[in-house]
Amino acid sequence: MLHETWKTHEPLKKVEVVHTNAQKFKVSDMLTVGKQYDVINETEDYYQIIDNAGLVGGYYKTYFKEV
């Protein structure tokens, strides 16, 4: 299963958090505005990154800009 090896994969690219203004979920605890994160996996709508908790989480691309 692909998701079980995400932490050991080479990052695809880096993204920087632009905002944490979520409509439905609170993401300000897991993302820091201005901080850069490595993208582990990417889908059409989401980036999977290692967040502030040290776990891989999926977040909408609208929170980020590519570095």
Rank of each mutant, 00 (worst) to 15 (best):
G54C: 05
V39Q: 06
G58M: 08
H9K: 15
K14F: 05
V18R: 13
L2S: 14
V27H: 03
T5I: 15
T32L: 13
F25P: 01
Y47D: 07
Q48H: 11
V18S: 10
E42Q: 12
V67L: 14
D29G: 04
T62H: 12
E10I: 11
E44Q: 14
T62S: 13
T32Y: 06
T8M: 13
Q36K: 15
K65D: 07
K61P: 04
V15E: 06
M30H: 09
F64S: 03
L31V: 01
E44I: 13
Y60T: 02
Y47C: 01
V67K: 13
V56M: 08
Y59M: 02
Q36H: 10
L12H: 03
V15W: 00
D45S: 13
L55P: 00
K24M: 05
Y63L: 01
A53K: 12
S28E: 14
K35T: 03
L12G: 02
I50E: 13
K7I: 10
M1I: 12
S28M: 09
L55G: 11
K14I: 00
L31A: 01
H19L: 06
V27D: 01
F25Q: 14
D38A: 07
Y37N: 11
Y47S: 07
L55F: 06
V15H: 09
N21L: 11
D51E: 05
G34R: 06
K14E: 11
